[in-house]
Design a protein around this nucleic acid. Structure first.
Lengths: 175, 175
DNA sequence: AAGGCGTAATTGGTCTGACCAATGCCGCCG
DNA sequence: CGGCGGCATTGGTCAGACCAATTACGCCTT
Protein backbone atom coordinates (compact mmCIF):
# COMPACT_ATOMS: atom_id res chain seq x y z
CA UNK A 1 0.00 0.00 0.00
CA UNK A 2 2.91 2.34 -0.72
CA UNK A 3 1.83 5.95 -0.71
CA UNK A 4 4.97 7.23 0.96
CA UNK A 5 4.04 10.31 -0.98
CA UNK A 6 1.65 11.72 1.59
CA UNK A 7 1.20 15.43 1.99
CA UNK A 8 1.62 17.22 5.26
CA UNK A 9 -2.13 17.36 5.50
CA UNK A 10 -2.47 13.61 5.29
CA UNK A 11 0.33 13.21 7.77
CA UNK A 12 -1.58 15.40 10.17
CA UNK A 13 -4.67 13.26 9.86
CA UNK A 14 -2.60 10.18 10.49
CA UNK A 15 -0.85 11.86 13.39
CA UNK A 16 -4.13 12.74 15.06
CA UNK A 17 -5.48 9.28 14.42
CA UNK A 18 -2.46 7.57 15.91
CA UNK A 19 -2.44 9.91 18.87
CA UNK A 20 -6.07 9.07 19.53
CA UNK A 21 -5.21 5.41 19.26
CA UNK A 22 -2.04 5.67 21.30
CA UNK A 23 -3.74 7.47 24.15
CA UNK A 24 -6.39 4.80 24.26
CA UNK A 25 -9.43 6.93 23.60
CA UNK A 26 -12.66 5.06 23.10
CA UNK A 27 -15.85 6.23 21.37
CA UNK A 28 -17.51 8.90 23.45
CA UNK A 29 -14.28 10.19 24.91
CA UNK A 30 -13.31 13.78 24.60
CA UNK A 31 -10.08 14.23 22.70
CA UNK A 32 -7.59 17.02 23.42
CA UNK A 33 -8.49 20.53 22.36
CA UNK A 34 -7.38 21.95 19.03
CA UNK A 35 -4.83 24.12 20.77
CA UNK A 36 -3.39 21.21 22.72
CA UNK A 37 -3.23 19.02 19.62
CA UNK A 38 -1.44 21.78 17.78
CA UNK A 39 1.13 22.07 20.53
CA UNK A 40 1.69 18.35 20.97
CA UNK A 41 2.01 17.74 17.23
CA UNK A 42 4.07 20.87 16.71
CA UNK A 43 1.79 22.16 13.99
CA UNK A 44 -0.39 25.23 13.80
CA UNK A 45 -3.97 25.30 14.87
CA UNK A 46 -5.27 25.86 11.33
CA UNK A 47 -3.45 22.68 10.32
CA UNK A 48 -5.12 20.81 13.16
CA UNK A 49 -8.46 22.22 12.15
CA UNK A 50 -8.12 21.18 8.52
CA UNK A 51 -7.45 17.64 9.62
CA UNK A 52 -10.11 17.69 12.31
CA UNK A 53 -12.75 19.06 9.91
CA UNK A 54 -12.08 16.20 7.55
CA UNK A 55 -12.31 13.66 10.34
CA UNK A 56 -15.57 15.27 11.42
CA UNK A 57 -16.96 15.14 7.90
CA UNK A 58 -16.10 11.47 7.71
CA UNK A 59 -17.99 10.90 10.92
CA UNK A 60 -14.97 9.88 12.94
CA UNK A 61 -15.13 12.70 15.44
CA UNK A 62 -17.75 15.20 16.46
CA UNK A 63 -17.03 18.76 17.48
CA UNK A 64 -19.19 20.82 19.78
CA UNK A 65 -18.80 24.54 19.76
CA UNK A 66 -17.23 25.41 23.09
CA UNK A 67 -17.48 21.84 24.27
CA UNK A 68 -14.54 20.10 22.69
CA UNK A 69 -14.21 17.27 20.19
CA UNK A 70 -15.46 13.77 20.82
CA UNK A 71 -14.60 10.41 19.34
CA UNK A 72 -17.60 8.79 17.68
CA UNK A 73 -18.53 5.25 17.04
CA UNK A 74 -19.64 5.34 13.54
CA UNK A 75 -22.95 3.63 13.35
CA UNK A 76 -23.81 6.96 11.91
CA UNK A 77 -26.66 7.27 9.50
CA UNK A 78 -24.98 10.02 7.53
CA UNK A 79 -24.24 7.76 4.61
CA UNK A 80 -27.84 6.84 4.19
CA UNK A 81 -28.30 10.26 2.68
CA UNK A 82 -25.70 9.45 0.12
CA UNK A 83 -27.58 6.42 -1.07
CA UNK A 84 -30.78 8.42 -0.92
CA UNK A 85 -29.21 10.90 -3.26
CA UNK A 86 -28.91 8.28 -5.95
CA UNK A 87 -32.53 7.40 -5.65
CA UNK A 88 -33.78 10.95 -5.48
CA UNK A 89 -31.86 11.99 -8.53
CA UNK A 90 -33.32 9.07 -10.34
CA UNK A 91 -29.93 7.67 -11.11
CA UNK A 92 -30.85 4.47 -9.38
CA UNK A 93 -34.21 2.82 -9.06
CA UNK A 94 -35.71 1.78 -5.78
CA UNK A 95 -35.90 -1.81 -6.96
CA UNK A 96 -32.12 -1.72 -7.11
CA UNK A 97 -32.05 -1.50 -3.34
CA UNK A 98 -33.54 -4.90 -2.65
CA UNK A 99 -31.67 -6.30 -5.62
CA UNK A 100 -28.39 -5.02 -4.32
CA UNK A 101 -29.03 -6.55 -0.92
CA UNK A 102 -29.87 -9.89 -2.52
CA UNK A 103 -26.69 -9.81 -4.56
CA UNK A 104 -24.51 -8.91 -1.61
CA UNK A 105 -26.07 -11.63 0.51
CA UNK A 106 -25.95 -14.12 -2.33
CA UNK A 107 -22.18 -13.85 -2.52
CA UNK A 108 -21.93 -14.36 1.22
CA UNK A 109 -24.09 -17.43 0.95
CA UNK A 110 -21.98 -18.90 -1.83
CA UNK A 111 -18.86 -18.42 0.20
CA UNK A 112 -20.30 -19.92 3.36
CA UNK A 113 -19.20 -23.50 3.89
CA UNK A 114 -21.21 -24.50 6.89
CA UNK A 115 -24.71 -23.33 6.15
CA UNK A 116 -26.14 -25.27 9.04
CA UNK A 117 -24.88 -22.56 11.35
CA UNK A 118 -27.61 -20.37 9.92
CA UNK A 119 -30.36 -22.72 10.99
CA UNK A 120 -30.49 -21.20 14.44
CA UNK A 121 -31.57 -17.88 12.97
CA UNK A 122 -34.15 -19.01 10.44
CA UNK A 123 -36.99 -17.32 12.24
CA UNK A 124 -36.10 -13.68 11.89
CA UNK A 125 -35.16 -12.27 8.52
CA UNK A 126 -33.04 -9.45 9.93
CA UNK A 127 -30.92 -11.65 12.17
CA UNK A 128 -30.57 -14.33 9.52
CA UNK A 129 -29.12 -11.87 7.05
CA UNK A 130 -26.94 -10.24 9.66
CA UNK A 131 -25.34 -13.53 10.62
CA UNK A 132 -24.98 -14.42 6.97
CA UNK A 133 -23.03 -11.26 6.21
CA UNK A 134 -20.86 -11.59 9.29
CA UNK A 135 -19.80 -15.02 8.10
CA UNK A 136 -17.76 -13.43 5.33
CA UNK A 137 -15.33 -12.03 7.87
CA UNK A 138 -14.82 -9.09 5.55
CA UNK A 139 -15.29 -5.90 7.50
CA UNK A 140 -15.55 -3.60 4.52
CA UNK A 141 -18.09 -5.83 2.83
CA UNK A 142 -20.09 -5.99 6.01
CA UNK A 143 -20.10 -2.24 6.39
CA UNK A 144 -21.26 -1.64 2.86
CA UNK A 145 -24.06 -4.11 3.40
CA UNK A 146 -24.99 -2.44 6.65
CA UNK A 147 -25.40 0.93 4.99
CA UNK A 148 -27.51 -0.36 2.14
CA UNK A 149 -29.58 -2.43 4.52
CA UNK A 150 -30.17 0.49 6.86
CA UNK A 151 -31.51 2.49 3.98
CA UNK A 152 -33.70 -0.38 2.83
CA UNK A 153 -35.14 -0.73 6.31
CA UNK A 154 -35.94 2.97 6.42
CA UNK A 155 -38.60 2.32 3.81
CA UNK A 156 -40.33 -0.15 6.05
CA UNK A 157 -40.70 -2.75 3.34
CA UNK A 158 -40.43 -5.55 5.84
CA UNK A 159 -38.57 -8.79 5.35
CA UNK A 160 -36.38 -9.28 2.32
CA UNK A 161 -36.99 -13.02 2.18
CA UNK A 162 -39.82 -15.29 3.21
CA UNK A 163 -39.22 -17.98 5.76
CA UNK A 164 -39.40 -20.56 2.99
CA UNK A 165 -36.75 -18.76 1.00
CA UNK A 166 -34.41 -18.64 3.95
CA UNK A 167 -34.89 -22.33 4.50
CA UNK A 168 -34.14 -23.08 0.88
CA UNK A 169 -30.85 -21.25 1.20
CA UNK A 170 -29.62 -23.91 3.56
CA UNK A 171 -30.04 -26.68 1.03
CA UNK A 172 -29.92 -25.27 -2.47
CA UNK A 173 -26.27 -25.41 -3.40
CA UNK A 174 -27.00 -23.86 -6.76
CA UNK A 175 -27.71 -20.58 -5.11
CA UNK B 1 -34.42 12.72 6.18
CA UNK B 2 -34.23 16.19 7.64
CA UNK B 3 -30.78 17.47 8.60
CA UNK B 4 -31.70 21.10 8.19
CA UNK B 5 -29.04 21.46 10.81
CA UNK B 6 -25.89 21.68 8.74
CA UNK B 7 -22.85 23.49 10.04
CA UNK B 8 -21.18 26.35 8.25
CA UNK B 9 -18.42 23.98 7.29
CA UNK B 10 -20.79 21.61 5.54
CA UNK B 11 -22.47 24.55 3.87
CA UNK B 12 -19.12 25.61 2.50
CA UNK B 13 -18.49 22.19 1.05
CA UNK B 14 -21.90 22.24 -0.58
CA UNK B 15 -21.34 25.77 -1.83
CA UNK B 16 -18.09 24.83 -3.49
CA UNK B 17 -19.60 21.70 -4.98
CA UNK B 18 -22.58 23.57 -6.39
CA UNK B 19 -20.39 26.34 -7.74
CA UNK B 20 -18.27 23.77 -9.53
CA UNK B 21 -21.41 22.23 -10.93
CA UNK B 22 -23.03 25.55 -11.78
CA UNK B 23 -20.00 26.82 -13.64
CA UNK B 24 -19.93 23.67 -15.68
CA UNK B 25 -16.49 22.43 -14.78
CA UNK B 26 -15.64 19.01 -16.07
CA UNK B 27 -13.03 16.56 -14.77
CA UNK B 28 -9.57 17.86 -15.44
CA UNK B 29 -10.59 21.49 -15.32
CA UNK B 30 -8.85 23.89 -13.05
CA UNK B 31 -11.20 25.39 -10.53
CA UNK B 32 -10.86 28.94 -9.19
CA UNK B 33 -8.08 29.65 -6.76
CA UNK B 34 -8.64 29.53 -3.04
CA UNK B 35 -8.53 33.29 -2.85
CA UNK B 36 -11.08 33.69 -5.60
CA UNK B 37 -13.38 31.08 -4.07
CA UNK B 38 -13.16 32.89 -0.78
CA UNK B 39 -14.16 36.15 -2.39
CA UNK B 40 -16.98 34.74 -4.47
CA UNK B 41 -18.45 32.80 -1.56
CA UNK B 42 -17.89 35.64 0.87
CA UNK B 43 -16.01 33.45 3.30
CA UNK B 44 -12.43 33.52 4.51
CA UNK B 45 -9.65 31.61 2.86
CA UNK B 46 -9.17 29.30 5.85
CA UNK B 47 -12.83 28.33 5.52
CA UNK B 48 -12.31 27.59 1.84
CA UNK B 49 -9.24 25.57 2.66
CA UNK B 50 -10.98 23.47 5.29
CA UNK B 51 -13.62 22.55 2.74
CA UNK B 52 -11.13 22.10 -0.07
CA UNK B 53 -8.87 19.89 2.03
CA UNK B 54 -11.80 17.62 2.77
CA UNK B 55 -12.79 17.49 -0.90
CA UNK B 56 -9.19 16.68 -1.77
CA UNK B 57 -9.04 13.95 0.83
CA UNK B 58 -12.18 12.43 -0.60
CA UNK B 59 -10.66 12.44 -4.06
CA UNK B 60 -13.06 14.95 -5.51
CA UNK B 61 -10.43 17.56 -6.29
CA UNK B 62 -6.68 17.56 -6.49
CA UNK B 63 -4.49 20.44 -5.41
CA UNK B 64 -1.05 21.16 -6.79
CA UNK B 65 1.22 23.41 -4.82
CA UNK B 66 1.51 26.57 -6.87
CA UNK B 67 -0.49 25.07 -9.68
CA UNK B 68 -4.07 25.41 -8.58
CA UNK B 69 -6.84 22.92 -7.81
CA UNK B 70 -8.26 20.52 -10.35
CA UNK B 71 -11.50 18.64 -10.60
CA UNK B 72 -11.04 14.89 -10.66
CA UNK B 73 -13.15 12.10 -12.10
CA UNK B 74 -16.76 12.92 -12.29
CA UNK B 75 -18.09 9.60 -11.02
CA UNK B 76 -20.14 10.01 -7.95
CA UNK B 77 -17.68 10.29 -5.18
CA UNK B 78 -20.18 9.38 -2.55
CA UNK B 79 -19.00 5.86 -1.98
CA UNK B 80 -15.42 6.92 -1.94
CA UNK B 81 -16.39 8.75 1.19
CA UNK B 82 -17.69 5.57 2.69
CA UNK B 83 -14.68 3.52 1.77
CA UNK B 84 -12.24 6.21 2.78
CA UNK B 85 -14.02 6.41 6.07
CA UNK B 86 -13.58 2.72 6.74
CA UNK B 87 -9.94 2.78 5.86
CA UNK B 88 -9.25 5.91 7.85
CA UNK B 89 -10.72 4.40 10.96
CA UNK B 90 -8.32 1.54 10.50
CA UNK B 91 -11.07 -0.91 11.28
CA UNK B 92 -11.05 -2.26 7.79
CA UNK B 93 -7.94 -3.88 6.42
CA UNK B 94 -6.61 -3.23 2.99
CA UNK B 95 -6.99 -6.89 2.15
CA UNK B 96 -10.72 -6.38 2.58
CA UNK B 97 -10.67 -4.29 -0.57
CA UNK B 98 -9.76 -7.12 -2.91
CA UNK B 99 -11.95 -9.50 -0.94
CA UNK B 100 -14.93 -7.21 -1.28
CA UNK B 101 -14.41 -6.94 -5.01
CA UNK B 102 -14.26 -10.71 -5.33
CA UNK B 103 -17.47 -11.08 -3.36
CA UNK B 104 -19.31 -8.45 -5.37
CA UNK B 105 -18.18 -9.98 -8.64
CA UNK B 106 -18.89 -13.47 -7.44
CA UNK B 107 -22.54 -12.63 -6.93
CA UNK B 108 -22.71 -11.14 -10.40
CA UNK B 109 -21.18 -14.28 -11.82
CA UNK B 110 -23.66 -16.52 -10.03
CA UNK B 111 -26.53 -14.50 -11.39
CA UNK B 112 -25.26 -14.47 -14.93
CA UNK B 113 -26.99 -16.99 -17.12
CA UNK B 114 -25.05 -16.70 -20.33
CA UNK B 115 -21.44 -16.77 -19.30
CA UNK B 116 -20.28 -17.24 -22.84
CA UNK B 117 -20.85 -13.56 -23.43
CA UNK B 118 -17.84 -12.95 -21.23
CA UNK B 119 -15.54 -14.94 -23.45
CA UNK B 120 -14.93 -11.96 -25.69
CA UNK B 121 -13.32 -10.10 -22.82
CA UNK B 122 -11.15 -12.78 -21.31
CA UNK B 123 -7.95 -11.00 -22.17
CA UNK B 124 -8.13 -7.92 -20.01
CA UNK B 125 -8.94 -8.22 -16.35
CA UNK B 126 -10.42 -4.74 -16.07
CA UNK B 127 -12.82 -5.08 -18.97
CA UNK B 128 -13.81 -8.60 -18.01
CA UNK B 129 -14.89 -7.48 -14.59
CA UNK B 130 -16.59 -4.39 -15.91
CA UNK B 131 -18.73 -6.39 -18.30
CA UNK B 132 -19.45 -8.88 -15.56
CA UNK B 133 -20.80 -6.24 -13.26
CA UNK B 134 -22.84 -4.57 -15.95
CA UNK B 135 -24.57 -7.87 -16.59
CA UNK B 136 -26.41 -7.51 -13.31
CA UNK B 137 -28.40 -4.61 -14.68
CA UNK B 138 -28.48 -3.19 -11.17
CA UNK B 139 -27.34 0.39 -11.27
CA UNK B 140 -26.84 0.80 -7.54
CA UNK B 141 -24.86 -2.40 -7.32
CA UNK B 142 -22.73 -1.31 -10.25
CA UNK B 143 -22.05 2.06 -8.65
CA UNK B 144 -20.94 0.49 -5.43
CA UNK B 145 -18.63 -1.83 -7.31
CA UNK B 146 -17.26 1.02 -9.38
CA UNK B 147 -16.29 2.97 -6.31
CA UNK B 148 -14.66 0.07 -4.53
CA UNK B 149 -12.85 -0.84 -7.71
CA UNK B 150 -11.64 2.71 -8.27
CA UNK B 151 -10.25 2.72 -4.78
CA UNK B 152 -8.58 -0.63 -5.35
CA UNK B 153 -7.03 0.55 -8.59
CA UNK B 154 -5.66 3.64 -6.90
CA UNK B 155 -3.28 1.39 -5.05
CA UNK B 156 -1.87 0.00 -8.27
CA UNK B 157 -2.14 -3.64 -7.28
CA UNK B 158 -2.71 -4.76 -10.84
CA UNK B 159 -5.13 -7.44 -11.98
CA UNK B 160 -7.53 -9.00 -9.54
CA UNK B 161 -7.62 -12.36 -11.33
CA UNK B 162 -5.23 -14.30 -13.49
CA UNK B 163 -6.21 -15.19 -17.01
CA UNK B 164 -6.65 -18.80 -15.91
CA UNK B 165 -9.02 -17.76 -13.17
CA UNK B 166 -11.14 -15.76 -15.53
CA UNK B 167 -11.36 -18.69 -17.86
CA UNK B 168 -12.41 -20.99 -15.08
CA UNK B 169 -15.28 -18.67 -14.27
CA UNK B 170 -16.88 -19.50 -17.58
CA UNK B 171 -17.14 -23.17 -16.81
CA UNK B 172 -17.17 -23.73 -13.09
CA UNK B 173 -20.84 -23.61 -12.16
CA UNK B 174 -20.03 -24.10 -8.50
CA UNK B 175 -18.60 -20.65 -8.35
C1' DA C 1 -23.92 21.92 54.53
C1' DA C 2 -26.18 21.63 50.13
C1' DG C 3 -27.74 23.49 46.08
C1' DG C 4 -28.46 27.09 42.67
C1' DC C 5 -26.43 30.75 40.08
C1' DG C 6 -23.35 33.85 37.91
C1' DT C 7 -18.80 34.71 36.36
C1' DA C 8 -14.48 33.36 34.46
C1' DA C 9 -11.83 30.01 32.00
C1' DT C 10 -11.89 26.80 28.32
C1' DT C 11 -12.79 25.53 23.71
C1' DG C 12 -14.41 25.61 19.07
C1' DG C 13 -15.53 29.11 14.96
C1' DT C 14 -13.98 32.60 12.01
C1' DC C 15 -11.23 36.00 10.15
C1' DT C 16 -7.09 39.06 8.87
C1' DG C 17 -2.80 39.27 7.36
C1' DA C 18 1.54 37.79 6.50
C1' DC C 19 5.24 35.04 4.59
C1' DC C 20 7.16 30.83 2.32
C1' DA C 21 7.31 27.50 -1.57
C1' DA C 22 6.09 25.61 -5.88
C1' DT C 23 4.41 26.45 -10.30
C1' DG C 24 3.57 28.65 -14.58
C1' DC C 25 3.67 32.39 -17.68
C1' DC C 26 5.95 35.61 -20.55
C1' DG C 27 9.27 38.46 -22.14
C1' DC C 28 14.07 39.08 -22.79
C1' DC C 29 18.34 37.75 -24.70
C1' DG C 30 21.35 34.89 -27.30
C1' DC D 1 13.49 30.88 -33.16
C1' DG D 2 14.47 28.82 -28.86
C1' DG D 3 16.14 28.56 -24.26
C1' DC D 4 16.26 30.79 -19.90
C1' DG D 5 15.36 33.71 -16.12
C1' DG D 6 12.45 36.66 -13.43
C1' DC D 7 7.86 37.84 -11.85
C1' DA D 8 3.01 36.97 -10.98
C1' DT D 9 -0.06 33.48 -9.41
C1' DT D 10 -1.38 29.97 -6.34
C1' DG D 11 -1.24 26.66 -2.72
C1' DG D 12 1.05 25.73 2.20
C1' DT D 13 1.69 27.25 6.71
C1' DC D 14 1.59 30.03 10.46
C1' DA D 15 0.61 33.69 14.21
C1' DG D 16 -2.60 36.18 16.43
C1' DA D 17 -6.84 38.14 17.42
C1' DC D 18 -11.66 38.18 18.47
C1' DC D 19 -16.35 36.07 18.87
C1' DA D 20 -19.60 32.44 20.51
C1' DA D 21 -20.85 28.48 23.02
C1' DT D 22 -19.94 25.59 26.64
C1' DT D 23 -18.07 24.20 30.88
C1' DA D 24 -16.04 24.64 35.48
C1' DC D 25 -15.89 26.51 39.73
C1' DG D 26 -16.53 29.36 43.52
C1' DC D 27 -19.63 32.28 45.86
C1' DC D 28 -23.90 33.26 47.80
C1' DT D 29 -28.34 31.96 49.38
C1' DT D 30 -31.15 29.03 51.84
Amino acid sequence: MGKKQSSAFEKNITAIKTMIEHDGFVPGDRIPSERELAERLSISRPAVREALRTLAYLGIVETRHGGGSYLLNRDDHAYIEIIAHFLVTGESKFEDLAGTLRLIEHAALCKLEDRESLRDHLETDALFREVLIQSTGNDLYERIWRQVNAFYLSFGQGDLYTRAERESFLNDRSR
